[in-house]
Amino acid sequence: MFEVMMYDGGVYRSAELYEMIEDVGGVVLQSTRSSQMLTVTMSIPGEDKPAMEVLCKSIGGEVKSVPLAGTEIAVVGCTLGRHHMPHPICDIAEQLRQYGSISVVMGLARGRGKATSQISKTEMDIIEEYDAAILMLGNFKQCIEAKRDLFKDIGIPMILVTGPMPEGLDGDCEAIIPGVGRKAERMRTTEERKKLEEIADKVDEVLRSKRKILEEDPLFVHPAELKKLLEEYEPVNMSLRPAPIVLHMDGLRVKIPLGENIDYFNTLEIYGRKLTDIARITESKINDGSTLIRIKTRSEVEDMDRLNGTEQ
């Protein structure tokens, strides 16, 4: 059984860390270097965890648990205006990062107003690329309830973070966390920090139940295994973008254009199968610089084999 953990420390002797991950057969999910500081999110066999913890301590770092590792979450605001951004959206996004997730912040083009708020199909498609999304709403109960259309048709787990507790929205989202609302300063007090942890814990809870559903019919290949393969491809390997590959619960986002690399994706093989047979590969709706890979489940692949009469 693989376990996900995060090393948080300096770059000093980090080569030893990478070497040990490779030795135990683990995978680096995410490595972020900022000046002399380094955070490495890794997935390693459970039995090697104590040895890894000893190594991390001996090279001057610490080990943190990261319940949201391997997920990408969007934190959505009604607009990018200063009324809705940056507080507390950025605080929530940062809290999710501390829990191991890759989090992004986005604002809707016309999400403000009680009677005039709207969401476009493109915006909905972009939000659906993520594992889950948090929608940040404001301080008036009636305005929150009137904005139901912004999230009711989105097909991924939605978590609402609001000021007052709205009524009648329970069926349209996975969870509602009241007590935040619009703020003009950072969430620094003890109560506010606790609230941020409550939000991240709720996201964890929601994703756990999604993971349980996935486990009933597992993916044909684990995204981390595919990541290992994709890392060897030169355009990914040479990519200067932070996190050129981002893991999702049901696939991954590779930050290379699909159009320019279509031949590579068409010919890539994993476990003797073509990637195009075991995954759906599409261009990201954000821009053409990213490619989304959604891995099919085992039953889907078996079904496809039966239909094609090529059962293996």
Partner: peptide, 19 residues
């Protein structure tokens, strides 16, 4: 009419005017 909103806007006004 909204108790939560009343308190939230009192704080918002105070913070922004001080800012």
């Amino acid at each position: 009419t909204d108790e939560y909103g009343n308190e939230a806007y009192r704080t918002l006004l105070d913070t922004i005017m001080n800012d």
